[in-house]
Design a protein around this nucleic acid. Sequence first.
DNA 1: CGTTTTTGCTACGATTTCAGTAGCAACAAC
DNA 2: GTTGTTGCTACTGAAATCGTAGCAAAAACG
Lengths: 114, 114
Amino acid sequence: MTKPPKTTPRPGRRVRGSATGRPVMVLLDLLGRRWVLRILWELRGAPLTFRALQAACGGLSPSVLNARLAELRDSLIVEQRPDEGYTLTRQGRELLTQLAPLTAWSEKWAKSLG
Amino acid sequence: MTKPPKTTPRPGRRVRGSATGRPVMVLLDLLGRRWVLRILWELRGAPLTFRALQAACGGLSPSVLNARLAELRDSLIVEQRPDEGYTLTRQGRELLTQLAPLTAWSEKWAKSLG
DNA sequence: CGTTTTTGCTACGATTTCAGTAGCAACAAC
DNA sequence: GTTGTTGCTACTGAAATCGTAGCAAAAACG
């Protein structure tokens, strides 16, 4: 049985603050959950095991990590490969590409904050 | 006295899961807080008053909205203009630009999820 | 084989964050 | 002066997250 966690936001489904379920709103809900951006970021390179990913994220609790991974798998952004670990799907990798310029921006931002 | 909310992540300061305070980590912490992405999104157009912004976000609680706005102002991403309301700073607008492709991505994503 | 590690997770109580409603001070309009 | 709007603060209960412990399965080791 595939178990879609009832908490995973999906396009067309009502999400936090948006009854319409417009894809971009759903995405913002999904990405706005704690650790999600960080998890995607840490998966930018090679696949990571559950524990490696947990460590990369500074030791977040396994319950939360597992919850986030379930949502991301359910959303076809992350997948789990046997004997390799967790990795981004092609789609997930595209998403991360969109987010890549954030590094450059954050450097400038840091300077402006002194 | 300027009151930097002790919870506002800042480059160089330790953030959730990252003792280094690398700018991009700090940014991910900031953006990963609930409602932040949505708030930036809703401010993409004209300035909005507190209540208008609250309504645009589907009626999130004023306490959370106020907390997020304080963090974003503190981070020089959002500013409050007298008689106009809240708006993105130049910097904040740049950040949003980096995020803009998310709309297109989310459309494709929605289709792939059926 | 038996033992030790590693891995992927689940359980659970403590803490933090968020939701939801109420309401207040300041200002403006009527 | 009363009604309305705005920007918020306060408060309580619900939900999300933290932090630690631990367990079953698989791998590595001897």
